[in-house]
Computed example of a mutant assay.
Amino acid sequence: MLAGRLETASRTFAVREVPEPEPGRGEVRVRVRAAGVCLSDVHLIDGSLRPSFSGLAEVTLGHEVAGEIDALGSDVPGWSVGDRVLLRAGERCGTCATCVRFRLPCLAVRARGIDYDGGWAEYAVASHHTLVAIPDELPFEQAAIVPDAVSTPWGAVAGTGRAGPARPAGVWGAGGLGAHAVQLLRLVGAAPIVAVDPRRAARERALDLGADAVFAPDDPELPAAVRAVSGGGLDVAFDLAGAARAREQALDCLAPGGRLVLVGLTPEPLRVDDATTMTFNGQQILGHYGSLPGAVDQLVTLIRHGRLDLSRSVSGVVALADAADAVARVRDGIGDPVRLVLVP
């Protein structure tokens, strides 16, 4: 079968023929129908992001995956060949203290397409407990991006950031994650919603998806304008851009008691110009990564009942054989995509 493989030492990526995988105990083989291309995949290829746990010499990329069950291994309860599914973006390690002793989030989640083979392939193997059933009316291309592009901002909005009804919220970076953060803030009733992005097309998209006001980050009056729109500052601000300047700017726009949630990834340091004022105001900086296991199931339910529409999220569909071109388009921002999706 064809698979998009990354050699971890040389950072060489290529789509080439590999053997079809066979499901083991507790696993299924999924015929991949769609797989998202994330900026994290670009960072894996360029070396700025590296696996935390994998010792593999090479790995099939792709952590956003949807398809149909093609074959069952032994001891797979409740699933059948032909079932339409999406795959959670990772799984518990099964050995850390929280896995063994407590019903808490795993301390060392293994990420699909990073620590083990993912879904940029014609077939992918998955543990049965990472499967989520999807309704017939949900296209594979939209289902594929739920684990990460949608679930990560959902975890930040509804969990870490504690966004609430009639509370002002801001989004820095209205791309693949930020566009969904705007929709999800609207879903939980946050108001007003402010979006900040240097690209005009991204700002217009944010307005279309539910933002109440948009700004360019180089606007010298931005903090004052955000405070005016929000009635004194933001209750919560989300950095989806992964840029130090965006984080510093978002901090300046917080109200007393406000929270800055760091979602985008960057190795750049975060500077707090006036830590005394931040302490006096009781403001917080919170890190956020991924989502809890139940998040994907919640989102599928919201989609099924018409509360969340992802029809505008897929910016293009690219053949798996042309995965390198899709990576370049995401890397260079060509066409300002929310998500590109690979199809075998």
Rank of each mutant, 00 (worst) to 15 (best):
T152F: 04
T98R: 13
P217D: 08
V109H: 06
G155M: 02
V100D: 04
V150D: 06
R203C: 01
V194G: 06
R199V: 15
A195K: 04
D208A: 15
R200L: 11
A213P: 13
P220D: 13
L131S: 10
I114R: 03
G118S: 11
T130C: 12
T152E: 06
G118C: 14
G118W: 10
P220H: 15
V100T: 12
A126E: 06
R112P: 12
V125D: 11
W172M: 14
A201G: 04
A190M: 02
W154N: 03
W120V: 10
A163T: 07
G113Q: 07
G159N: 06
S151W: 11
H129C: 09
R101I: 08
A179P: 06
G210N: 03
Y116L: 15
D115W: 03
T95Q: 12
A126S: 15
L177D: 02
A124F: 05
Y116G: 14
F140K: 03
D219S: 15
G170H: 01
A181V: 03
C96K: 13
D148V: 13
R110W: 14
H180Q: 14
F140W: 04
G178Y: 01
V150E: 08
T95I: 14
A121K: 15
P217N: 09
R205D: 02
A108W: 11
E221S: 14
A111E: 13
R103F: 08
Q142K: 13
P135K: 09
L138E: 11
A211W: 01
W154M: 12
R203L: 03
A144T: 04
C99K: 14
F140I: 11
A126V: 15
I134N: 14
W172G: 06
A133T: 14
D218Y: 08
G210P: 11
A174Q: 03
I145P: 14
T160C: 03
P153M: 00
L104D: 08
R110Q: 15
E122T: 10
P220R: 14
T98W: 12
D136W: 10
R205I: 00
V214D: 01
V125G: 09
D212E: 09
A216K: 07
R199T: 06
E204D: 05
D208F: 02
D117E: 09
A190C: 05
A97I: 10
P168K: 05
W172H: 10
V171Q: 00
F215P: 05
V125A: 09
P198V: 04
C96H: 09
A149G: 09
A108E: 13
A158I: 03
G176Q: 06
R200N: 05
V182R: 00
Q183I: 02
A133M: 12
P198W: 09
P198T: 04
P147K: 11
Y123P: 10
